[in-house]
């Protein structure tokens, strides 16, 4: 595995050397610190930080003016923070421009996708009113898949058992209000 990784890294660097504009594209993650390549992802972070500062500034400047002994109201801290973020965004841009970010391992998109899908599906199911147990089971199965466990039926089975146990423990043991669905309501009826 490491050998494989180094090879790809070497290749990318080579091809980058040949092409005239020295830009580190998002796909070329193994290229890193001191490579002198412009890091597009890093520049993206800098741009995001600028945008964040703008949002904070915009929000703070919309507050109604108050007269108080302090002479400064709830806007003073947001202004300080926005100023700090602008300065840091500047530094980040310089670091990214010089290729100062460390090498990043190649991204496993499928793993990331399954995790996000797991949480999004759970949110949708909870809003749709399927209840905690069903939503958690799907969450468990999808996230096990994210880590390369492809025994789907087993994943769902373990997820269902675990979610049910957790529901019983936290609903009746600690009195936490977990979202109810048809299954939860029937358990409630049964245990009452």
């Amino acid at each position: 595995m490491p050998a494989d990784r180094q090879e790809t890294a070497g290749e990318t660097r080579l091809s980058a050397d040949q092409s005239a504009p020295e830009v580190r594209l998002h796909g070329e993650d193994e290229v890193g610190q001191g490579s002198g390549l412009r890091d597009l992802a890093g520049l993206g972070i800098a741009a995001g930080l600028f945008a964040l500062a703008l949002v904070i500034y915009g929000d703070a400047s919309s507050y109604p003016v108050r007269r108080s002994y302090a002479q400064f109201g709830p806007e003073i801290f947001p202004y300080i923070i926005a100023f700090g973020i602008v300065v840091l965004a500047g530094f980040t841009a310089v670091i990214a421009w010089r290729g100062g970010f460390e090498a990043r391992a190649r991204l496993n998109y499928s793993g990331l996708f399954w995790i996000v899908a797991a949480i999004v599906t759970e949110i949708i199911m909870l809003f749709a009113g399927t209840g905690f147990i069903a939503a958690s089971t799907v969450l468990f199965a999808f996230s096990a898949r994210a880590f390369g466990q492809t025994t789907h039926l087993l994943n769902f089975a373990i997820g269902a058992v675990m979610s049910t146990l957790l529901f019983l423990l936290f609903r009746y043991g600690l009195g936490l209000a977990l979202p109810n669905g048809p299954l939860e309501r029937s358990i409630d009826l049964l245990l009452r």
Binding site: S143, R145, Q149, S163
Partner: peptide
């Protein structure tokens, strides 16, 4: 590990 991490995620959202 897959089940361990999936369990953590389930517990976190719970």
């Amino acid at each position: 590990r897959p089940w361990l991490y999936a369990g953590i995620l389930t517990f976190a959202t719970l």
